[in-house]
Protein backbone atom coordinates (compact mmCIF):
# COMPACT_ATOMS: atom_id res chain seq x y z
CA UNK A 1 0.00 0.00 0.00
CA UNK A 2 1.26 3.38 -0.89
CA UNK A 3 1.86 5.76 1.94
CA UNK A 4 0.16 9.11 1.64
CA UNK A 5 2.73 11.84 1.57
CA UNK A 6 1.84 15.28 2.83
CA UNK A 7 4.11 18.10 1.87
CA UNK A 8 4.27 20.87 4.41
CA UNK A 9 5.21 24.48 3.63
CA UNK A 10 8.97 24.74 3.81
CA UNK A 11 8.92 26.93 6.87
CA UNK A 12 7.27 24.28 9.03
CA UNK A 13 9.03 21.31 7.52
CA UNK A 14 11.31 19.47 9.91
CA UNK A 15 14.92 19.86 8.92
CA UNK A 16 15.64 16.40 7.66
CA UNK A 17 19.03 14.89 8.30
CA UNK A 18 20.28 13.23 5.17
CA UNK A 19 21.54 9.79 6.11
CA UNK A 20 24.11 9.85 3.35
CA UNK A 21 26.12 12.93 4.10
CA UNK A 22 24.74 14.20 7.37
CA UNK A 23 24.05 17.55 5.80
CA UNK A 24 20.99 19.59 6.71
CA UNK A 25 18.57 19.99 3.83
CA UNK A 26 15.60 22.31 3.50
CA UNK A 27 12.71 22.32 1.10
CA UNK A 28 13.39 25.28 -1.06
CA UNK A 29 10.21 26.07 -2.85
CA UNK A 30 7.04 28.04 -2.23
CA UNK A 31 3.92 25.95 -1.57
CA UNK A 32 0.76 28.05 -1.45
CA UNK A 33 1.43 31.09 -3.58
CA UNK A 34 0.00 34.42 -4.58
CA UNK A 35 0.78 35.83 -8.02
CA UNK A 36 1.56 39.37 -9.21
CA UNK A 37 1.31 42.65 -7.34
CA UNK A 38 1.04 45.79 -9.45
CA UNK A 39 1.73 49.28 -8.06
CA UNK A 40 2.56 52.75 -9.30
CA UNK A 41 2.68 56.36 -8.27
CA UNK A 42 0.00 58.82 -9.35
CA UNK A 43 -0.93 62.38 -8.48
CA UNK A 44 -2.33 61.82 -4.99
CA UNK A 45 -0.15 58.92 -3.89
CA UNK A 46 0.26 55.28 -4.80
CA UNK A 47 -2.12 52.70 -6.30
CA UNK A 48 -1.72 48.98 -5.84
CA UNK A 49 -3.62 45.85 -6.80
CA UNK A 50 -3.44 42.11 -6.23
CA UNK A 51 -5.92 39.31 -6.83
CA UNK A 52 -7.30 37.12 -4.04
CA UNK A 53 -6.12 33.73 -5.24
CA UNK A 54 -3.83 31.44 -3.33
CA UNK A 55 -2.63 28.67 -5.63
CA UNK A 56 -1.37 25.25 -4.58
CA UNK A 57 0.77 24.52 -7.59
CA UNK A 58 -1.68 24.73 -10.48
CA UNK A 59 -4.67 24.21 -8.19
CA UNK A 60 -6.72 27.32 -7.39
CA UNK A 61 -6.73 26.36 -3.70
CA UNK A 62 -7.99 29.40 -1.73
CA UNK A 63 -10.01 32.07 -3.51
CA UNK A 64 -10.35 34.91 -1.06
CA UNK A 65 -6.93 35.54 0.44
CA UNK A 66 -5.88 39.09 1.24
CA UNK A 67 -2.46 40.03 -0.13
CA UNK A 68 -2.60 43.75 0.62
CA UNK A 69 -1.95 44.95 4.13
CA UNK A 70 -1.77 48.27 5.93
CA UNK A 71 1.07 48.87 8.39
CA UNK A 72 0.35 51.85 10.61
CA UNK A 73 -1.67 54.74 9.22
CA UNK A 74 0.10 55.47 5.96
CA UNK A 75 1.97 52.42 4.75
CA UNK A 76 0.65 49.82 2.35
CA UNK A 77 2.31 46.47 1.80
CA UNK A 78 1.57 44.07 -1.06
CA UNK A 79 2.97 40.56 -1.34
CA UNK A 80 3.46 37.79 -3.83
CA UNK A 81 5.01 34.37 -3.35
CA UNK A 82 4.56 31.96 -0.45
CA UNK A 83 1.56 32.95 1.62
CA UNK A 84 2.57 31.13 4.79
CA UNK A 85 5.77 33.15 4.76
CA UNK A 86 3.61 36.24 4.29
CA UNK A 87 1.47 35.33 7.28
CA UNK A 88 4.65 35.07 9.33
CA UNK A 89 5.69 38.50 8.07
CA UNK A 90 2.23 39.83 8.94
CA UNK A 91 2.77 38.79 12.55
CA UNK A 92 6.21 40.40 12.56
CA UNK A 93 4.82 43.66 11.20
CA UNK A 94 1.89 43.64 13.62
CA UNK A 95 4.36 43.17 16.48
CA UNK A 96 6.38 46.07 15.13
CA UNK A 97 3.29 48.24 15.01
CA UNK A 98 2.33 47.28 18.55
CA UNK A 99 5.81 48.03 19.89
CA UNK A 100 5.73 51.43 18.24
CA UNK A 101 2.28 52.16 19.66
CA UNK A 102 3.41 51.17 23.15
CA UNK A 103 6.14 53.80 23.03
CA UNK A 104 3.24 56.24 23.41
CA UNK A 105 5.29 59.24 22.30
CA UNK A 106 3.46 60.57 19.25
CA UNK A 107 6.20 59.33 16.95
CA UNK A 108 5.23 56.94 14.19
CA UNK A 109 7.11 54.60 11.91
CA UNK A 110 7.30 56.12 8.45
CA UNK A 111 6.97 54.11 5.26
CA UNK A 112 10.73 54.17 4.72
CA UNK A 113 11.28 52.64 8.15
CA UNK A 114 8.78 49.87 7.49
CA UNK A 115 10.50 49.25 4.16
CA UNK A 116 13.93 49.16 5.77
CA UNK A 117 12.65 46.77 8.43
CA UNK A 118 11.13 44.37 5.90
CA UNK A 119 14.28 44.60 3.76
CA UNK A 120 16.43 43.69 6.75
CA UNK A 121 14.30 40.64 7.51
CA UNK A 122 14.46 39.51 3.88
CA UNK A 123 18.21 40.06 3.57
CA UNK A 124 18.96 38.41 6.91
CA UNK A 125 16.93 35.36 5.96
CA UNK A 126 18.66 35.07 2.58
CA UNK A 127 21.98 35.35 4.43
CA UNK A 128 20.95 32.34 6.52
CA UNK A 129 20.13 30.63 3.20
CA UNK A 130 16.61 30.15 4.56
CA UNK A 131 14.67 32.81 2.69
CA UNK A 132 11.11 34.01 3.06
CA UNK A 133 9.83 33.14 -0.41
CA UNK A 134 8.18 36.48 -1.15
CA UNK A 135 8.38 39.70 -3.04
CA UNK A 136 7.15 42.73 -1.12
CA UNK A 137 5.94 46.01 -2.50
CA UNK A 138 5.92 48.78 0.09
CA UNK A 139 4.11 52.05 -0.59
CA UNK A 140 3.26 55.16 1.33
CA UNK A 141 3.74 58.83 1.97
CA UNK A 142 6.78 59.54 4.10
CA UNK A 143 7.07 63.17 5.21
CA UNK A 144 4.70 64.10 2.35
CA UNK A 145 6.94 62.35 -0.17
CA UNK A 146 5.60 59.51 -2.29
CA UNK A 147 7.46 56.29 -1.68
CA UNK A 148 7.28 53.03 -3.61
CA UNK A 149 9.80 50.26 -2.97
CA UNK A 150 10.37 46.58 -3.68
CA UNK A 151 12.24 43.83 -1.88
CA UNK A 152 12.45 40.13 -2.68
CA UNK A 153 13.74 36.87 -1.22
CA UNK A 154 17.31 37.85 -2.14
CA UNK A 155 17.03 41.08 -0.20
CA UNK A 156 17.38 42.88 -3.53
CA UNK A 157 15.66 46.21 -3.21
CA UNK A 158 14.85 49.13 -5.41
CA UNK A 159 12.52 52.08 -5.67
CA UNK A 160 10.73 52.99 -8.84
CA UNK A 161 7.64 54.96 -9.93
CA UNK A 162 6.20 51.71 -11.28
CA UNK A 163 6.62 48.25 -9.76
CA UNK A 164 5.17 44.87 -10.69
CA UNK A 165 6.10 41.51 -9.21
CA UNK A 166 6.07 38.02 -10.67
CA UNK A 167 4.37 37.73 -14.06
CA UNK A 168 3.44 41.38 -13.67
CA UNK A 169 7.09 42.28 -14.21
CA UNK A 170 6.74 40.92 -17.74
CA UNK A 171 3.12 41.71 -18.57
CA UNK A 172 2.12 44.78 -16.53
CA UNK A 173 5.43 46.63 -16.22
CA UNK A 174 5.63 47.46 -19.97
CA UNK A 175 2.12 48.96 -19.79
CA UNK A 176 3.04 50.96 -16.69
CA UNK A 177 6.31 52.20 -18.20
CA UNK A 178 4.34 53.46 -21.19
CA UNK A 179 1.43 55.05 -19.37
CA UNK A 180 2.88 56.15 -16.04
CA UNK A 181 6.63 56.75 -16.26
CA UNK A 182 7.37 60.49 -16.27
CA UNK A 183 3.71 61.34 -15.56
CA UNK A 184 3.49 60.12 -11.96
CA UNK A 185 2.65 63.59 -10.63
CA UNK A 186 -0.04 64.25 -13.24
CA UNK A 187 -2.19 61.13 -13.34
CA UNK A 188 -5.60 61.70 -11.74
CA UNK A 189 -7.27 58.99 -9.70
CA UNK A 190 -9.73 58.13 -12.46
CA UNK A 191 -6.97 57.44 -14.97
CA UNK A 192 -4.92 55.59 -12.37
CA UNK A 193 -7.83 53.23 -11.74
CA UNK A 194 -8.17 52.63 -15.49
CA UNK A 195 -4.45 51.83 -15.81
CA UNK A 196 -4.59 49.52 -12.82
CA UNK A 197 -7.61 47.65 -14.19
CA UNK A 198 -5.99 47.34 -17.63
CA UNK A 199 -2.89 45.79 -16.06
CA UNK A 200 -4.91 43.38 -13.97
CA UNK A 201 -7.06 42.44 -16.96
CA UNK A 202 -4.02 41.61 -19.09
CA UNK A 203 -2.67 39.55 -16.20
CA UNK A 204 -5.97 37.73 -15.85
CA UNK A 205 -6.02 36.94 -19.57
CA UNK A 206 -2.48 35.61 -19.69
CA UNK A 207 -1.34 34.51 -16.21
CA UNK A 208 -2.79 31.07 -15.56
CA UNK A 209 -2.27 31.53 -11.79
CA UNK A 210 -4.35 34.71 -11.65
CA UNK A 211 -7.98 35.22 -10.73
CA UNK A 212 -10.77 37.63 -11.58
CA UNK A 213 -11.45 38.61 -8.02
CA UNK A 214 -9.09 41.25 -6.82
CA UNK A 215 -8.55 44.10 -4.42
CA UNK A 216 -7.07 47.45 -5.14
CA UNK A 217 -5.65 49.86 -2.63
CA UNK A 218 -4.44 53.40 -2.55
CA UNK A 219 -2.35 55.31 -0.09
CA UNK A 220 -2.77 59.09 -0.07
CA UNK A 221 -2.48 61.93 2.43
CA UNK A 222 -5.77 60.61 3.82
CA UNK A 223 -4.16 57.26 4.66
CA UNK A 224 -4.52 53.72 3.38
CA UNK A 225 -7.68 52.47 1.71
CA UNK A 226 -8.01 48.81 0.69
CA UNK A 227 -11.07 47.95 -1.40
CA UNK A 228 -13.41 45.02 -1.06
CA UNK A 229 -12.93 42.34 -3.74
CA UNK A 230 -14.29 43.19 -7.16
CA UNK A 231 -14.21 41.72 -10.66
CA UNK A 232 -13.15 43.08 -14.02
CA UNK A 233 -15.22 42.94 -17.16
CA UNK A 234 -13.63 40.53 -19.60
CA UNK A 235 -14.40 39.45 -23.12
CA UNK A 236 -13.47 35.98 -24.30
CA UNK A 237 -15.10 36.23 -27.77
CA UNK A 238 -11.68 36.07 -29.36
CA UNK A 239 -11.40 32.52 -28.09
CA UNK A 240 -13.84 31.45 -30.82
CA UNK A 241 -11.34 32.35 -33.50
CA UNK A 242 -8.43 30.49 -31.97
CA UNK A 243 -7.63 27.35 -33.91
CA UNK A 244 -5.26 24.69 -32.70
CA UNK A 245 -4.10 23.93 -29.18
CA UNK A 246 -7.62 22.71 -28.32
CA UNK A 247 -9.35 25.69 -30.00
Amino acid sequence: MDAIKIQLPHTVQPRAENANDGAVSRTMQPIVTGTSVVAFKYKDGIMMAADTLASYGSLARFRSEKRLMAVGDNTLVGVSGDLSDFQYMQHVLEDLETRELCMDDDQTLGTKSVYKYISNIMYNRRTKVDPLWNSYVVAGLDHDEKFLGFVDLYGTRYQSPTIATGFGAHLAQPILRKRVEGREDEIEEEEALAILDDCMRVLFYRDARSFNKLRRAKVTAQGVEISEPYSLETNWDFAESIVGYGG
Binding site: F150, T156, Y158, Q159, S160, A169, H170, Q173
Partner: peptide, 13 residues
Protein backbone atom coordinates in the same frame (compact mmCIF):
# COMPACT_ATOMS: atom_id res chain seq x y z
CA UNK B 1 20.04 50.83 -13.96
CA UNK B 2 19.31 47.86 -11.75
CA UNK B 3 18.40 44.70 -13.58
CA UNK B 4 17.57 41.08 -12.95
CA UNK B 5 18.13 38.92 -16.02
CA UNK B 6 16.31 40.57 -18.93
CA UNK B 7 14.13 42.68 -16.63
CA UNK B 8 14.88 46.23 -15.58
CA UNK B 9 14.05 46.53 -11.89
CA UNK B 10 14.60 50.26 -11.66
CA UNK B 11 15.95 53.01 -13.86
CA UNK B 12 17.29 54.93 -10.89
CA UNK B 13 18.88 52.75 -8.24
Amino acid sequence: RQSNGYSINSRYS
